[in-house]
Design a binder for these strands. Structure first.
Lengths: 218, 218, 218, 218
DNA sequence: CATGAATGAGTGTTCATTCAT
DNA sequence: AATGAATGAACACTCATTCAT
């Protein structure tokens, strides 16, 4: 879980305190990816040109190609690092908690924070799957499914333990996860809700969705 | 509410039974729009070329332009008709029910059915907002907000009546509506769940999300 | 010289009074040609579309094709009728005068009036030669040369008679004719000069250009 | 008057002898403009395609766009450089002479030489005004008027000095200038007249047109 | 490392023209 | 006589990408 990630993202110094999944400093993406991300978020992959990315990252067009071999490679880098980052954080959040309710709360909180703090990354990871080539798409979907299974596993455990009462746990998971990922569609950092306020409110709703009667954390 | 829609979509013969919002016959879109819809759903607006649309609608490129003046106009037609259709169905569903719980159930069911039965239309309406020009975008967002307000109004009524216990009704509405619209991202008609099964399960989850203790429909 | 013209233009009833070349009633062009003429004058042949011509002549596109088989045929009709009209008027003007000075004055006056009264026709005839196909171009140039020779013949007669003193009669003719045809570039009917005022002033200049010492019609 | 011209045209090294306005070396236009010029002269602006220009300048279509952002920008560059070149030469010619007769002779000679030596440039500057957009057209017309006023000013001086006897100086100027600019319509370098022969003959005619009795240059 | 110049393939769009009705 | 629907070819222009320097 604390493996150093080759992609350059993730937790670079895991303290004992397993709360690193809360920390969102400056994004550690390559400047080209930073620029590309802004462009993709605004205009989509196909609506973005290499010249836009070059301008956004203050490089020449050829300069962009010096760092990444193709526009598609840039998309792959952006998406895979996003998924990897989310996975590192999710497993860290999961490991830091015990019992289905707290694990669920942590993982969903992590998911929500990621979708507010890394909104563009999450948005692209959600909406540009179709722009990936077959190989990259398969890899991406595997990561997405891994993420989904983590939630499902927790909920199924909760149902087995009798703390969740979801009639259809997998559907509840789908509902919960999609309502969280949808946050990247509408959340604005300068809006009415802070990231943590949103997380609290949505966690309560998510717990209700999986039929949790108990109150969180004690 | 039963006004015949000038866009050519929607229920053209409203029977007394206010269940017309359940009926999804063959989509009544112009062949060009049908073809464009398939393309947009697969590749996105910017990833779709006029030549694809022409091929998909069995016309020449110039033939497409005989019916619609630009690619953007095609997108506008697709999206506005989708929003109009959904609105007609939603208001019909709302009108057919009484009391917050049943109104909520009907409107959410309607939303879910629309997102399974008109999955591509709904998907485009959700994901291609950024591809609209300023004017069309404003019009689209107005329609989207109108839709959102309908749900909020019902939930607020439910809270006022004491049948819903949502701590934050507007956030609950957001969560509910986005988990419903997200259905267009993953639902497959040939998958495990039928449209009505999905609607039933998701309605239960949605009711839980707004803090409804009572059971639906008696 | 007074042959009835198959094109449908020209003097349709030659009275004894040989002044018909002065008369500019409503242009007798086919409505399609009238519309095309306005378009060609504004945007040039290649800058004009069949749809513009259709709109300008209050017909459908197919309606235009009912009257003329192609855009090119319209140009040919416009240009050939203009050249024919000018030739009819020029020979009439020539025939009505006697002696080089008066013949010159009449023919140049005729040329000037044509370029103010039939400005667009003259302008197209001057500027769209390159847009004609080989055959039509050859025919057009023959008519243009015929026109030029008429002036040259008169001036050469004048030089032979000793009333003109042009050192290089053909060059003087070129200068005179081009300064007259150029009138179609700048003349505006609502400008400072009336058609006849312009003709008078330019005739004086033209006579000077061919070295005429005597005063006209004295 | 000997300001170095930012357009890259014009006299780059003004010797004392103010005869630089006679020198027509290889045109210093950008290869793309050279190619475009040939095309425009043959087929007109609207009759010319970017592919023609690309072929004529030995570049790919995209290569043309690397140097100029649009077909229209190419036209603007061609026309504005032509007008600037003519203006530099005209003012040089004017400054090199004294007295209305010699100034007139020099400026008209300059005008004629330009229209034989830079025939295509001059032709385009004369015939494609309507193809310019509003802004470029205004700029062009301002330059054209400036050119016209130079001639008018000289002639008016000549009339004031009593060396010219034009009854209507401005009309005479129009006649003279248009007969000079028309040279670009018909002159062929391999024709009967050399550029200087033509200039001599036309100058004599132009002097007659403005009512000059004295003989030029001594 | 970085870039200005270049390009083949493709973009959305328009063209003159046809034809069934 | 007149037209709405249709089209192949071409239009101006842009794309992702390459490469000599």
């Amino acid at each position: 879980m604390s493996d150093s990630v080759s992609t350059g993202v993730g937790t670079d110094a895991d303290a004992d305190a397993a709360d690193t999944w809360h920390d969102y400093g400056r994004s550690r993406l390559h400047p080209v990816l930073e620029g590309a991300l802004r462009c993709f978020a605004l205009h989509g992959y196909h609506g973005t040109t290499i010249r836009m990315i070059a301008a956004e990252s203050s490089l020449s067009v050829a300069g962009v190609y010096h760092h990444y071999p193709s526009k598609h490679a840039i998309l792959v880098a952006v998406m895979s690092q996003a998924m990897e980052d989310l996975w590192q954080r999710s497993t860290a959040a999961d490991a830091a908690a015990e019992g289905p309710v707290d694990r669920f709360t942590d993982v969903i909180t992590c998911l929500l924070e990621f979708h507010t703090q890394r909104r563009d990354d999450a948005f692209i990871a959600l909406t540009e799957i179709r722009s990936l080539d077959a190989e990259a798409r398969a890899a991406h979907i595997a990561k997405r499914d891994r993420q989904q299974r983590l939630v499902e596993e927790i909920v199924e455990q909760g149902v087995a333990d009798g703390v969740f009462e979801a009639a259809h746990p997998r559907d509840a998971c789908r509902a919960v996860v999609t309502m969280c990922t949808s946050v990247s569609h509408w959340y604005r950092p300068d809006g009415a809700l802070s990231s943590s306020e949103l997380a609290q409110r949505y966690c309560a709703i998510a717990l209700a969705a999986v039929g949790c009667r108990t109150v969180t954390r004690g």
